[in-house]
């Protein structure tokens, strides 16, 4: 690929999503953009760059950006955050929100929905404590394809074996064909999925008690990370909780949050009184 074409595509993707594509990712760009070119009846990536230079066609730009997202996810990913949710965060909120009896959770960059549905399954396991409570779980992602997959709640045999205990599979899924499983309606109804861009779109509208923003900041540059963390802080309750992925942190990036000592991946707002180290 010509370097000015690479430049054009990577700048477009960065502007629209924050995703950084360094020159060593040229092969990735090529392999993922070929299908987009084909879909738009464009012969080559060179031609596709020409089309974009001539006019900024929205559907083409959308498809290019979507194609460059990495959507890997699995149920109960890293286990620990979900144990933390069940054993620590939920009990804290059950005490703190006893008047309103409402908890709102946001799975930001939800991909195909496993994270949000894992939370929903935990809530069902804790149903006794949550009687009369209203728990809202909202999942957003920039990728339309992923949002639609998440809404369908349909997963392959491979996907339902990664992270999901088989007892949960039997309890919360129905088998719709040999190797396709669908999450049951009762769980599906607990979660809402929508398209949403972390750079621009905070209409998923807080305030949230818990935000999970996991395994997406790693793809952004420092200013973008800071910007996104700042926006998240803006839609979080003062005593809310933020969960990041294992390779992500707020340290040295945003002063809106502080880490919670002894709980890797858990953050609270700077003004929170939750026991934490600066």
């Amino acid at each position: 690929m010509k370097s000015e074409d690479f430049e054009l595509f990577s700048t477009l993707v960065k502007q629209r999503s924050g995703l950084i594509l360094t020159a060593d990712k040229a092969y990735l760009l090529e392999s993922r953009l070929f299908p987009v070119a084909r879909k738009h009846n464009i012969k080559s990536l060179e031609d596709m760059a020409q089309v974009l230079r001539a006019r900024r066609e929205e559907t083409l730009m959308f498809d290019i950006t979507e194609a460059m997202t990495t959507n890997e996810s699995f149920f109960f990913r890293d286990q620990k955050p979900f144990t933390l949710f069940q054993k620590t965060l939920l009990p804290k909120l059950l005490a703190a929100r006893v008047d309103k009896k409402q908890i709102r959770i946001w799975s930001a960059a939800a991909s195909s929905g496993q994270e949000a549905y894992s939370l929903a399954m935990v809530c069902v396991e804790e149903a006794v404590k949550l009687q009369d409570w209203r728990v809202e779980i909202i999942g957003t992602d920039i990728s339309r394809e992923m949002v639609n997959r998440a809404k369908s709640g349909i997963y392959s045999q491979f996907e339902v074996q990664r992270g999901l205990p088989v007892t949960h599979l039997v309890k919360y899924f129905q088998q719709i064909s040999g190797d396709k499983w669908q999450i049951k309606d009762s769980i599906r109804q607990m979660v809402q999925f929508r398209e949403g861009n972390l750079l621009t779109d905070f209409s998923a509208a807080g305030p949230f008690d818990i935000v999970l923003c996991r395994n997406v900041l790693i793809y952004f540059d420092l200013p973008t990370k800071a910007h996104v963390l700042g926006s998240i802080a803006g839609v979080m309750q003062p005593d809310g909780f933020l969960l990041l992925g294992g390779a992500e942190t707020v340290l040295g990036i945003s002063d809106k949050f502080k880490i919670v000592s002894g709980e890797h991946g858990l953050y609270v707002k700077a003004e929170s009184s939750y026991e934490a180290v600066a």
């Binding site: 045999q157 205990p165 088989v166 599979l169 039997v170 088998q175 040999g178 190797d179």
Partner: peptide, 23 residues
Amino acid sequence: ENDINHIQEALGSGANEYIMKPF
């Protein structure tokens, strides 16, 4: 064996987990 009936039978007989091939 990848149908839910087999999985339930296995769990009922005291299996702790269940993997459907291919793994």
